[in-house]
Amino acid sequence: MKRLTEKILSGDVRAIARAISWIENDYAQKEQLIDDLYPHCGNAVVWGLTGPPGSGKSTLLNLLIARERMKGKRVAVIAIDPSSPFSGGAILGDRLRMQKHSTDSGVFIRSMASRGHLGGVAGATADAIKVLDAAGFDLIIIETIGVGQTEIEVVEMTDVVLLLLVPGLGDEIQALKAGIMEIGDIFIINKSDKDEAMKTKAEVEYVLSLNDNPRKDRPNPIFMTSAVLNLGIDELSTGIDLYIEELRVNGLIEDKRRKRIAREIRLMITAKIRREVEKQLGLNERIDSWVDQVYRRKRRPYAMINELSDTFFKKNRT
């Protein structure tokens, strides 16, 4: 374990990759590993990139990685794709668009399957960010699945959320505003070479103008890009840097990071206790008989559940 930690801190690719697998597979050793790495975390800036499927997230990211590399930054990407709810398998295809960075030792790309986790990211994403942070990457980018409107968990893991939109969503912009439109810090209209792009921009501006924004003096930036034609990428790249600098100066980045930690503590403690409760109650072994009793109306759901939880609390009182 000590050797793995040291290797990760020295930036060893094999060790970093292996550690992420431990996290994904939820190995018991992962806790010690993360705790050992944690004192070395906190230097990386974390971007989230989200948007509808097919909006060009991976293609745009491919170009942004190149820009960040020119600035001398070491870049890590976690690209999340969905797992099949039926087979548990997955096709992870985001890497395909970024493969040209594969041989650059300053870039690390990891594909991650959601493994049943909802919210556009995977259960392992938060801890994987810590590994990459400790390994010395300056920038970590989380590319979400791209399923749509409820893909908001990424906002709780990152310093800045880039929301990618494309022309042709039309009236759906209206529908989007209740979900994904609220989480973007920086808005990007990709496929700006398409006819409707300016109309889309106007719609986004309109929707944003309706927001009850606490910072009316500083509206969310909107950028126009065409990843295929390599247009607008420099402006976007500079815009992101400026935005993050502004967050830093205003202390907003610290607010975000404190919120992130608060959320993680909540999640970690409830997950831990839930596992213990399930174990002590023998939930997996007994669930069928409970279902049967409730299904046949032999028992009432709340009465049964209260009885079970009382047993648990009594047992753990001392």
Partner: peptide, 15 residues
């Protein structure tokens, strides 16, 4: 790749 996905494996396709 598709068949491996359906068999429950995680497939990274690089093109």
């Amino acid at each position: 790749s598709r068949a491996l996905r359906d068999a429950g494996y995680e497939v990274i396709y690089t093109g």
